[in-house]
Design a protein around this nucleic acid. Structure first.
Lengths: 294, 294
DNA sequence: GTCATTAGCTGACAATAGTCAGATAAAAAT
DNA sequence: ATTTTTATCTGACTATTGTCAGCTAATGAC
């Protein structure tokens, strides 16, 4: 079983526990009550901002504060005032806390592994979990800037290329880590965004500058949404985010190319203010071209 | 959305809450704390035996008792000593309790309906939920005697016939409610069992007497497992249950017919003590015949 | 500067959940 | 008939979770 399966399983678990209004009691059995265990895990999972923690765990500020003091007294975390705003405190794991967190992670991994290992079709099970998690978590999908060469982005892009390969019946194999376009999709030139649902990247989109005569123009590329998360408005969110970044980067116009084989997409473009234009590049796979002034 | 979708959704929800070690906080918002609300719902759902309730909800006997007293004081339930064993008390909803229970059901229905209604592919979502629920709940699948003309049995049989029709490319349409074989599959002549996972029937099997010369013989018929629950040992459980009933009914030998197109099944039969025999009936769809002395 | 707002903390409670050692009565085992 | 076991109940606790008003320090608006 790959690490990726485990993370997909855990995403499902998180989606279910946080979206269906359920509490995860998984954490019991390691000698710590649910409250502090949830806080410890959330911090371990990368939520350092206390206000974020409160929102994620839906805890009262008083209760949150007490739980933090408790973990601090146990020597598992430290809290420090924020760098910019000293009111916003940050929580971080101490080495002892990291060890405890790792124990929870192992427990969780083991459960995921067991469940998948004894299933006759683990891939089908994971796909079903993805579908359910996306449906349950559709209101909590976040679009965020990411490094196009990071692991999550690479996972998305590989899935995207595989998707394209199967649609065009032809192998897509762009240079991977040394992707010549990657640097163009990083600030300050462009942008690359990921749609993240409960910690798993389920979609992506890139924006790179396009040399043009009359006005600063960007090109939208590699917009892709995981099949199990389609129809949930993710691509719309991705496009909005890319437009926002384009504006911030001073671009005045966006372009994109697409193919008749990706028919779902064309409706979205038309519905969100894009107009079809004449071919503007020599991409052999593209047969439809759109433009939007922003 | 059909009622069936709702029950499938709710089955998923129950499977997730009870199998992943999570507590359903769904019940909040109707002015009752989680504990009593869970008890009320479990009773409404048909769990009357207090020991069953305790096991299902995993509550301490003292706590359970107190929650019952509380609900009794509110006039929502009554408890009575069991008919056979006066220690085992039974809990039942009063009319007022039934009204409260219905309010929870409506809330739950509404949530299920909303979630399905806003999904682009509700059927795919439900199928994914079935798959996940079956995987999570595989250790809690119960095989129980049922009326072959009951609603759950009819749902299974219809799915079974649809399955056969698609495999044989030919329409199967046995007489439904007036099924001539139904009465043969009821005690005292035969048996009909359902595999139930979190309240949803996911498989079935029938047993009817077969006229034979040398020893009392039964025939196993209509063994079917929902595609989303296959590979989880359900058919094995069904066959075991049918064998048990056959023994109780005094049968000494079992027979069954099957088709080469249902190849998965033949491995199971061989592995569980059946031997292939010569054709014993004129079923045109059957081309393989098995027998087992019990 | 003053004032309103914000993030988080503390104290004082209250409600809920869980535990455990008997008590009681019915059933089962001897 | 006696003893043991079982199912439930009760009382006396403890632990956990949730709530709310007021406090402090930092920030931002005017």
């Amino acid at each position: 079983m790959t690490q990726d399966s485990i993370s997909r399983f855990r995403r499902f678990s998180r989606a279910v526990t946080s979206q269906m209004g359920v509490l995860d009691q998984d954490f019991l059995g390691l000698g710590r009550p649910l409250g502090p265990a949830r806080v410890l895990n959330a911090i371990g999972h990368g939520l350092h901002d206390i206000s974020q923690l409160r929102e994620y765990l839906r805890l009262d500020s008083g209760l949150m504060s007490r739980l933090l003091r408790q973990l601090e007294a146990e020597g598992l975390i430290t809290t420090t005032p924020g760098a910019e705003d000293k009111r916003r405190r940050q929580a971080h794991l101490t080495p002892a806390g990291a060890t405890e967190y790792a124990a929870y992670e192992r427990l969780s991994d083991a459960r995921a592994h067991d469940c998948l290992a004894r299933h006759p079709k683990p891939d089908a099970l994971l796909a079903a979990m993805d579908l359910v998690a996306s449906a349950l978590g559709r209101d909590h999908i976040q679009v965020q800037l990411a490094d196009p060469c990071g692991q999550a982005a690479q996972d998305c892009l590989e899935a995207y290329y595989a998707d394209l390969s199967s649609r065009f019946g032809q192998r897509f194999d762009p240079v991977r880590s040394g992707d010549p376009e990657a640097s163009a999709m990083r600030p300050p030139d462009g942008a690359f965004v990921l749609a993240v649902s409960d910690g798993l990247a389920i979609g992506c989109g890139g924006l790179k500058p396009l040399a043009d005569s009359d006005m600063p123009t960007g090109e939208v590329k590699r917009v892709w949404v995981s099949p199990n998360a389609r129809g949930m408005g993710v691509s719309r969110q991705l496009m909005q985010a890319l437009e926002g970044h384009a504006r911030d980067l001073g671009m005045r116009r966006l372009r994109l190319d697409t193919s008749a084989k990706l028919s779902e997409a064309r409706g979205l473009y038309r519905a969100t203010g894009w107009t079809e234009v004449a071919r503007y590049n020599d991409n052999p796979y593209a047969d439809h071209f759109f433009e939007k002034v922003i």
